[in-house]
Amino acid sequence: MAAYQRSQWKGKPWLHIGMPVAYAGDRELKNANQLSGLVVYAALPLEDDRRDLAGLAKIARIAAIPPLALALVPALLAARSVLRPVRKLRNAAERFASGDLGFRVQPKGYDEIADLTRSFNAMATKLQEDDTQRRRMEAGAKRFAADVAHELRTPLAAMAPVTDLLAQDAAAHELPPDTAEAIQLVAERTRALVSMIEDLMEMSRFDARAAPLRAERLDLRALVTKSLKLRGWESSGQVRAEMPFSIMITADSRRIDAILANLVGNALRHGSPPVIVSAHTTSDHVLITVRDHGPGIPEEAFPHVFERFYRASTTHTTSAGSGIGLALAQENALLHGGTLTAANAHGGGAVFTLALPLAVSEGDSN
């Protein structure tokens, strides 16, 4: 069996062949076809072959350029004709995702891309119709709530003083026990209904972009203290303010008071005392936090905390509150150019953080 090996000698390629020599000829010889022990070597230069192959490769490359160029032009034209409608569909999808539901792509031809374009336009039309219907229903629901609140406001305004007067008589033991208990319940529910109607009216103003912002320079610590004292929370020992120094802010005192009342009232209803109200400043924000020591907010409730009429527990449907207090608090925060976020504190309890930007609020310590 022959052996082959390639090598380089003086920069040129060579092929070396080695082959053993065997006996051959007369069959009577006992050693016929047996190896003789001799090995024949041959060295063949490959330089000419290499030059020939290089020349053939060069010729092949040169010969391939014209047909490749000729094939490239129609290939580019074909690719462009295919990619152009795909690019239009991509741009349409981007505009559609940005909210331009009325944008459509004009289909051309009857190929697969044209069929895809028609399907896209049909989907866009259906989604636009659904979105229009949803917006119409939302507007109708908001208008209905505003109309109901407006119609109920006048009779409730007349009922509230009467029920309060009867409740005072009941508290003074001037009525039979059963009657007094019923009157107290009616007065409590009337006050809750009045509060809910006021919240609905306020929400309708936010929906109509008619909520005014009357900003003024005020002391946040004094505002928090006044808000807690007004509702009797500070004297009850269930709520305390941890604000060692004054922080001057520019904001609407009535709306900041409404945010605090909603957050603290929500903490007392759904959490556990003590409820702590604190505030501090950062480089670009004033942060007001309200924390309770209750069980905290369930994980599944976080995406819905600030939704209108959402209740994390369906077992407390008769609990106090209109169900839109946190939604109103968030709207008031947004009206100031700030944010309102909810989280669970380390060690238990929920914590709500109101952040007012320094462009609106400016904190300063004494």
Score class of each variant (00 low, 15 high):
residue 215 A to W: 11
residue 196 M to E: 13
residue 220 L to Y: 06
residue 174 E to C: 10
residue 225 T to M: 15
residue 160 A to R: 06
residue 267 A to Q: 05
residue 286 V to Q: 04
residue 232 G to S: 14
residue 280 H to V: 05
residue 202 E to G: 00
residue 285 H to Y: 11
residue 244 P to E: 04
residue 296 G to Y: 06
residue 260 L to S: 00
residue 223 L to G: 02
residue 297 I to P: 05
residue 272 S to L: 13
residue 225 T to H: 13
residue 297 I to V: 08
residue 265 G to R: 03
residue 209 R to Y: 09
residue 227 S to Q: 14
residue 273 P to L: 13
residue 233 W to V: 07
residue 224 V to S: 00
residue 302 F to T: 02
residue 194 V to I: 13
residue 179 T to A: 14
residue 257 D to E: 12
residue 221 R to Y: 03
residue 289 T to F: 06
residue 213 L to C: 07
residue 302 F to C: 06
residue 187 A to Y: 04
residue 277 V to A: 04
residue 288 I to P: 03
residue 227 S to N: 11
residue 280 H to F: 10
residue 216 E to K: 15
residue 214 R to E: 12
residue 225 T to E: 09
residue 266 N to W: 05
residue 274 P to F: 09
residue 224 V to L: 04
residue 218 L to K: 06
residue 170 A to L: 10
residue 303 P to M: 14
residue 287 L to Q: 08
residue 222 A to K: 01
residue 251 A to C: 08
residue 246 S to W: 05
residue 202 E to H: 12
residue 303 P to D: 06
residue 189 R to N: 08
residue 178 D to L: 15
residue 281 T to G: 03
residue 192 A to K: 10
residue 216 E to P: 00
residue 165 L to S: 02
residue 196 M to L: 14
residue 191 R to P: 00
residue 240 R to I: 07
residue 306 F to A: 08
residue 279 A to L: 07
residue 252 D to C: 07
residue 302 F to Y: 08
residue 284 D to V: 10
residue 209 R to E: 14
residue 256 I to L: 10
residue 239 V to Q: 00
residue 237 G to E: 10
residue 205 R to N: 08
residue 304 H to Q: 12
residue 285 H to F: 14
residue 165 L to P: 00
residue 264 V to S: 01
residue 284 D to E: 12
residue 304 H to T: 00
residue 212 P to N: 12
residue 186 V to F: 12
residue 285 H to D: 11
residue 243 M to H: 03
residue 246 S to D: 08
residue 289 T to L: 14
residue 221 R to T: 03
residue 307 E to P: 00
residue 176 P to R: 13
residue 187 A to T: 01
residue 198 E to G: 08
residue 291 R to G: 00
residue 212 P to G: 09
residue 300 E to A: 05
residue 179 T to M: 14
residue 247 I to R: 03
residue 227 S to P: 03
residue 256 I to W: 00
residue 168 Q to V: 11
residue 196 M to G: 02
residue 197 I to K: 09
residue 164 D to M: 12
residue 294 G to H: 03
residue 223 L to S: 04
residue 223 L to A: 02
residue 301 A to Y: 02
residue 186 V to T: 09
residue 248 M to C: 06
residue 289 T to H: 13
residue 301 A to R: 05
residue 240 R to F: 05
residue 257 D to N: 07
residue 277 V to R: 04
residue 233 W to N: 02
residue 300 E to Y: 01
residue 296 G to K: 10
residue 303 P to R: 13
residue 227 S to V: 09
residue 204 S to N: 12
residue 166 L to G: 00
residue 180 A to H: 06
residue 198 E to Y: 04
residue 250 T to P: 01
residue 284 D to Q: 15
residue 213 L to Y: 07
residue 223 L to Q: 01
residue 214 R to G: 02
residue 296 G to T: 04
residue 225 T to L: 15
residue 195 S to M: 14
residue 225 T to V: 11
residue 226 K to M: 11
residue 171 A to V: 03
residue 166 L to F: 06
residue 180 A to I: 03
residue 214 R to H: 07
residue 179 T to E: 09
residue 259 I to C: 07
residue 198 E to F: 09
residue 169 D to L: 15
